[in-house]
């Protein structure tokens, strides 16, 4: 599905954001990239999305090198980034303007129902709470039916309850559609709740430090001893636990 080969990226002469990062993601896999701030994990995601050019190395999606935003790739930003001049429905339909109106309406209605916003189709973004706005953003990413969904700290601006709610929600959608998900997060519990594989990046220069396979059965309980033990190992890999 996704192959990242020897990817490097440098900002200016001093800052090496990424160095020789290689990663493969299988179809329907959920991979979480974690790391302390400045480890280049967001840069990595933006390069995969085609929003930034790689410095060295290359990114392949279904065997083809990424040269720009790809139709099969969806992106969920840290902020909802709804366009304030469009209603919720129009926002959801933003990326599928090329489809006939009936198809657009059917898809957006379906996506809004899936994220629980069917009754808010006609609302303006300013009328939504933070969690609702992010759900609308999820709907916008889903209507385009991506095979690969990239998530850049998608729930980090939300309160803990909304965050857990949306994490479960995302898993519910994934259980239906089985897209490939690549998630950047600095929340280890989020990574462990969602991912099949957690990739730990270390900073300066950003590179892959360790990869963990999370073989806990879903749904995962945050309080389970296995879960906590995994979290402890992750903390150690990040170099932040004694």
């Amino acid at each position: 599905m996704l192959r990242i080969e020897h990817l490097g990226k440098q900002f200016g002469p001093q800052v090496v954001a990424l160095q020789d990062v290689s990663l493969q993601v299988q179809p329907s896999e959920i991979v979480a990239l974690v790391g302390t701030s400045g480890c280049g994990k967001s840069t990595l995601l933006r390069i995969v999305a085609g929003l930034e050019a790689p410095g060295t190395g290359r990114v392949l999606i279904n065997g083809a090198p990424v040269v720009g935003p790809h139709p099969a790739v969806g992106f969920l930003f840290q902020e909802p980034r709804l366009l304030p001049w469009l209603t919720v429905r129009q926002n959801v339909e933003f990326g599928i303007a090329h489809l006939p109106a009936a198809e657009r309406a059917a898809r957006s209605a379906g996506a809004l129902a899936r994220v629980g916003l069917a009754d808010f189709a006609g609302a303006w973004p300013r009328q939504l709470s933070g969690g609702m706005a992010q759900r609308a953003a999820i709907a916008r990413a889903l209507v385009a039916r991506p095979n690969l969904l990239l998530l850049d700290e998608p729930f980090s601006a939300l309160d803990p309850f909304t965050k857990m709610d949306l994490q479960e929600h995302l898993l519910g959608i994934w259980a239906d559609d089985r897209h490939t998900l690549v998630l950047v997060t600095h929340d280890l519990e989020e990574a462990l709740v969602l991912a099949d594989r957690v990739v730990v990046l270390r900073s300066r220069p950003g590179r892959v430090h360790h990869t963990f396979h999370v073989d806990l059965p879903r749904p995962r309980r945050r309080t389970a001893p296995d879960f906590q033990a995994q979290k402890q190992r992750l903390l150690e890999a990040l170099g932040v636990a004694a």
């Binding site: 129902a113 899936r114 994220v115 629980g116 069917a118 479960e168 929600h169 898993l171 519910g172 959608i173 259980a175 239906d176 879903r218 749904p219």
Partner: peptide, 12 residues
Amino acid sequence: STLTLPPLAVRT
């Protein structure tokens, strides 16, 4: 149980 139910039914 939310996880196992289809989201459509849970949320609407």
